[in-house]
């Protein structure tokens, strides 16, 4: 694949005991594009995500992130919180992981933790209430307000995140990830559990993130209408290996892909083919 990749996954291996969950997987995600990672259940998609976002340490292979400024970071050497802090990779979770007892606004404030920690002089200046800190806090609130507005949750800013309806929680989680100002946004099944209208709204949101913020997006998705409509590039996995990649059109017509879905689950295969037409 040519172009300007932001993320390059090179022969990624992940073993759990004797089980090989991801086997020599290579693909790239282009800058300012939406790349979808699809495949039947158990194909190893979330494992790939966990390797990219530092929750798992890969057994082998390399994951390289090339920033706009030319900085290149080997993600497999970073772990845990450093992926988000230093490499600017943000993620959402398959089962939403908000801070349910905190308000929507507070959720977005927590996301700006590292920037605010610097602004508060590692708490000391903040404790004294210096004006520079107050300004920084105000800016953080403004950023949060902007994103609440973007995801249509401005009027629910002061409600507990755990009280929001499911679809709102999904969007809030995306807004929270965006508040870390990431270079790469990884979304784990963002459309899961959404109805048709909500998932349409999600498409618009993701496209606007790509077009306005210029954030590259990598997403795992089962909802093929989302994948087909917004992806620029699709990577198909099955049993831990890549079986196809290309434009949504090309992938949809690929017999190997259809066979993989048919082999895994007939309904899913039919859904793939129908949703593309």
């Amino acid at each position: 694949m040519s172009g300007d990749p932001i993320l390059t996954v090179d022969r990624l291996m992940m073993r759990f005991g004797g089980i090989v969950a991801v086997n020599e997987l290579s693909f790239a995600a282009e800058r300012r594009k939406i790349t979808a990672l699809i495949g039947p259940n158990g194909a190893g998609k979330t494992t790939v995500f966990n390797c990219i976002t530092g929750f798992y340490r890969p057994s082998g292979g390399a994951i390289r992130l090339a920033h706009d400024d030319g900085r290149s970071i080997q993600l497999e050497r970073l772990n845990d919180f450093r992926i988000s802090k230093q490499a600017k990779v943000a993620r959402t979770f398959q089962n939403i992981r908000l801070f349910p007892g905190m308000t929507a606004l507070e959720n977005l404030m927590v996301a700006q933790h590292n920037a605010l920690m610097r602004a508060s002089g590692l708490t000391l200046l903040g404790l004294l209430g210096l004006p520079s800190w107050r300004e920084a806090e105000q800016r953080a609130i403004e950023l949060a307000r902007t994103w609440l507005d973007r995801v249509g949750l401005l009027d629910r800013a002061d409600d507990a995140a755990g009280n929001l309806p499911y679809g709102d929680q999904r969007r809030l989680e995306i807004a929270r990830a965006m508040c870390t100002e990431p270079a790469l946004l990884c979304l784990d099944e963002p459309a899961a559990g959404l109805n048709a209208r909500e998932s349409g709204g999600l498409n618009e949101l993701l496209l606007s993130i790509r077009n306005e913020q210029g954030t590259s997006i990598l997403l795992i998705e089962h909802d093929m209408s989302v994948v087909m409509e917004i992806s620029d590039h699709v990577v198909v996995m099955d049993y831990g290996v890549k079986i196809a990649e290309g434009t949504p059109q090309a992938v949809r017509d690929d017999p190997k892909v259809i066979a993989a879905y048919l082999g895994a689950d007939e309904e899913e295969a039919i859904a793939v083919m129908e949703s593309g037409t």
Binding site: F81, R91, F99, P100, M109, H113, T123, L127, G129, A177
Partner: peptide
């Protein structure tokens, strides 16, 4: 005071969901 500073919010976020904190770049 601390509760209204990033460190205090991070404490509470930690209580709510440690994994999400890590994903947001907070050094747990």
């Amino acid at each position: 005071r601390l509760r209204r500073l990033p460190i205090g919010r991070a404490w509470e976020a930690l209580r709510e969901d440690e994994v999400a904190c890590r994903a947001l770049g907070i050094n747990v």
